[in-house]
């Protein structure tokens, strides 16, 4: 069924004991409240102690894959960006 009034939502889940929300997939829903319900049914099996975020897919701005080269080919060849030229005083621990 094509769903003009059931847009796509991206689902982010923080599992019990998890530190951050991870993208786990997407659902179709007419609004955020129902998107959370559906996400709970589809991605959590209603385990207790989880946190869900849903975001309308249209609201997500993504980087352009075509631009991945210039955007991410990082500072591999720019050694001056690598923090390897510092003298660490002996007294400093845990770096």
């Amino acid at each position: 069924m094509s769903q003009p009034d059931w847009p796509l939502w991206e689902v982010f889940l923080r599992s019990k004991g998890g530190l951050s929300h991870r993208h786990v997939g997407s659902v179709h829903a007419p609004d955020g409240e129902l998107a959370v319900r559906h996400a709970r049914d589809v991605y959590t099996r209603r385990m207790e102690g989880v946190s869900l975020w849903v975001v309308r897919s249209a609201d997500i701005v993504a980087s352009d894959p075509d631009q991945a080269g210039p955007m991410f080919a990082p500072a591999e060849d720019k050694v001056y960006r690598h923090p390897t030229f510092y003298q660490i005083p002996d007294g400093v621990k845990h770096i």
Partner: peptide
């Protein structure tokens, strides 16, 4: 069901 997600809700 009217939508895949609703199918899941009812089955649940």
């Amino acid at each position: 069901a009217p939508a895949l997600e609703v199918d899941l809700s009812l089955a649940n």
